[in-house]
Design a protein around this nucleic acid. Sequence first.
DNA 1: AAAAGTGCAGTTGTATACAATTATTTCTGG
DNA 2: CCAGAAATAATTGTATACAACTGCACTTTT
Lengths: 226, 226
Amino acid sequence: MSEANYLLGQKIFQKIRQDIIIGRYSRNEELKELLIASEMGVSRTPVREALRQLEREGLVAIIPNKGTYVVGITTQDMRDIYDIRVALEGLCVRQAADIATAGQIEALEEILYLAEYHLKKGHKKQVVELSGKFHEILYEASGNRMLKRVLQNYYLYLDQVRMFLFNVPGKIREVIGEHWQILEAIKERNGEKAEHAVSMHIANVIKLIDSYGWENITGGQNDGQN
Amino acid sequence: MSEANYLLGQKIFQKIRQDIIIGRYSRNEELKELLIASEMGVSRTPVREALRQLEREGLVAIIPNKGTYVVGITTQDMRDIYDIRVALEGLCVRQAADIATAGQIEALEEILYLAEYHLKKGHKKQVVELSGKFHEILYEASGNRMLKRVLQNYYLYLDQVRMFLFNVPGKIREVIGEHWQILEAIKERNGEKAEHAVSMHIANVIKLIDSYGWENITGGQNDGQN
DNA sequence: AAAAGTGCAGTTGTATACAATTATTTCTGG
DNA sequence: CCAGAAATAATTGTATACAACTGCACTTTT
């Protein structure tokens, strides 16, 4: 009665995915259907459906008749995703600069003002959420369904990195500043400028992570097959 | 005993996906589990798993407790994918130019020679296959797992467009020529040039489709809800 | 003692059974 | 004849049952 009693299978899928992304499972760890099912108090059926979906996302590998093994997001994957994002987020804001609606632009602006407020108040959690919402609207504003879809996925995958970044002193303020620049370019309907702003934004993130070392961001996931 | 008795669920997934991509189903058509199951002579279980996977790919939409509906690849999606591919295939060959192995380069060269041969002989089917293999190796040569994954997906989605293109007189020859240029740039380890060659390649395809009209490429998929 | 075969426990793959939800039809009252 | 409610059918969601396959320990054979 309370709220979205989302389908069991989807709930399991999302939980396992999140567990994989944040590194709760170690790489190559075997996911046994019956074990997960009993842990969640359900039967194997919805668990199997969830695992099959995870395989499509590339987060696990299923060896027929043998088992399901965690693949996860490696450090290399994260680097690679950033390369991809430079290309795709650039495309995204270029298109958004052309066709974003007044409502979308207003929503983006509202988010940034709100983020400034929560930043001042030290409400980190809200800022993180707003930052996600900012990207969400940007993706939507591109008017490109396929692009939105793939970028949303990658955004999810980088959850761990974002957690790390937002704990670096002063980084949040910097990010919001860069978001303002992106928004300004879109308001001016200047696709080139918007793309450049995004490239800078991502490049700065990469530079920061480089200085800390990519390996230190994931919680030292080991191999699981001693 | 004959061959790769691939898991039932995967086989169903691939069949339905192909049927959706080539437009055998109309948009918004309802996919009933029991119907598909009986058509394929299996139970609902593997069908459900397949449908859930298709939902992850965005090819169908599942409304809980209601049904599964075909989303498919719209004409707009195809345009959008080409925009994405300009960005991503460019990134791909740029990276490939840096790190492709001698073996991969040799494989690419061999494919093109073979394609030339089959082109002369008029073996269109073989040329299409080789063209796919060419891209496959390019994706692999980027050394970027996530990139490979997403590009493979998009390549699948454009099956219908490719069928169309390869029936345009002289287009196959042109495509092979452009592939040679890409390969040359990679052999020279010139990422810029490779990216430019890919951009040209894709731009030419887009230009050609524009001249025919995008709507005329898909077999006139109707809406399915009269 | 080494190699090969046998049997058993554990796990996945598929089918079926049942519960819950949604759609459709039929009946009833106005 | 129509609106609405009750009953019925159809469909999805989940659990369970059984078959098939895998891995490993144990036995047997040479």
